[in-house]
Nucleic acid binder design. Structure first.
Lengths: 214, 214
DNA sequence: AAGGAAATGATCCGAACGGCCTATACGGTC
DNA sequence: GACCGTATAGGCCGTTCGGATCATTTCCTT
């Protein structure tokens, strides 16, 4: 029999397609998980050689599931699947211990190759995510590096709290700083984001993806 | 030969899986498109009976592509595929003229059934999106009717201008009304949206889809 | 004809906001 | 050691904001 493979994806359509493709490629698909939690438990029971794991799944996402599985069963290789080439997610996946990272828009052959490479201990990245990225990723390994950061971490905290509905005073309380400091941070934010009040600052930050709406 | 089917999805993996599944189910897969633009052109050339169209695609999204295809070739049936059950998108898809709406987490059999139903003029919705939704959607079909409108048209104008960066005075100028009236509208908005200041009001309105970020 | 919602407008007032200036402390970098 | 950015904090001041209350007109529905 071929390499013992397990699938983890919350979309049945994709699981079915993968199971057929991978079986045809000579792999032994020993199980399918519908979410990250199930993936963790099934990995323990089935002990597959390689797991093809989707990034976005209910309950526990693929990255976290990967982290937990690699923590307990470090010889299980995990190839991540994702819809879109996202550097942040790629970095997180590599950090979590993934042996590969594939964009779903790749051929059956490419997936099969990646699984075989993973099984033999190599790392496979989607052709779309060239090797050039790898270096960058290693560098960018530290959680949200300081370069190209528009506003500072503290300013971001302030802005996020404002977006969450806090007033200046409430932000000060939550961060254990004075109202004046909060206003200082805001003034700095206004400059950096080219905003003239908190409303514009928050909107601009949302547009730029700096902060998130609940 | 079976029903002439065309696929439109930007993920090759999904296209390959679908092509195999649908071919097995007796359909005649006559073409595949990688984005909305290609889907529109291929639909014209191939004149398929049914198109399985992903919602999220580059260039032109599935909903817009559906709208354009139905506008010119109203007898081509389109079944939308989506990753997640989203009422807003569902409503948009139905408005655009889609004959079906499937969540990707459904079986090959369900997809095949939906395609057959679409071909015979019926509307198929994912079991996950019960028929109960349909009524709601049809009701909500007219572009922003007055009922169940949270804030009035005027209030919406005010809020949109605030979101665009206007101060109270600037809103007043643009709408040819006094600052006081703007403040009155805002006060009314705060009540309705459960906000205590313009920042929260705008954010809440964005969350609710009442206003849009540039 | 009556009632109600929407849009318009006003006054008063306290609280919040934003601009401006200054200052200290800490951590890096040159 | 000097310098720069960040985080902290204070004061001052004029502007803006939001709450409360009230009035007028128009339009739509009852």
């Amino acid at each position: 029999m071929g390499i013992r493979l397990m699938l983890a994806d919350d979309h049945r359509m994709l699981r079915e397609g993968l199971r057929r493709s991978m079986t045809d490629q000579g792999f032994d698909v020993v199980g399918e998980a519908r979410d990250g939690d199930e993936a963790i438990h099934l990995a323990e029971d089935l002990q597959p050689e390689v797991i093809l794991m989707d990034v976005t799944m209910p309950e526990v996402d693929g990255v976290e599931a990967t982290r937990q599985i690699k923590e307990r069963f470090s010889d299980i290789k995990i190839v991540m699947l994702t819809m879109h080439a996202d550097r942040e997610v790629l970095a997180a996946a590599i950090r979590a211990g993934a042996s590969g990272y594939l964009v779903k828009d790749c051929s059956t052959q490419e997936i099969a190759d990646a699984v075989r490479m993973a099984a033999s201990g190599e790392t496979a990245l989607s052709p779309q995510l060239a090797a050039s990225m790898l270096a960058e990723v290693r560098k960018l390994d530290q959680p949200s590096r300081d370069e190209d950061r528009v506003i500072t971490k503290r300013e971001e905290e302030v802005l996020q709290l404002i977006a969450n509905g806090c007033s200046t005073g409430e932000v000060a309380e939550q961060l254990y700083i004075s109202q004046k400091t909060v206003k200082n941070h805001l003034a700095s934010i206004y400059q950096k984001l080219d905003a003239r009040d908190r409303t514009q600052a928050v909107l601009q930050a949302v547009r730029m993806g700096i902060i998130h709406l609940d």
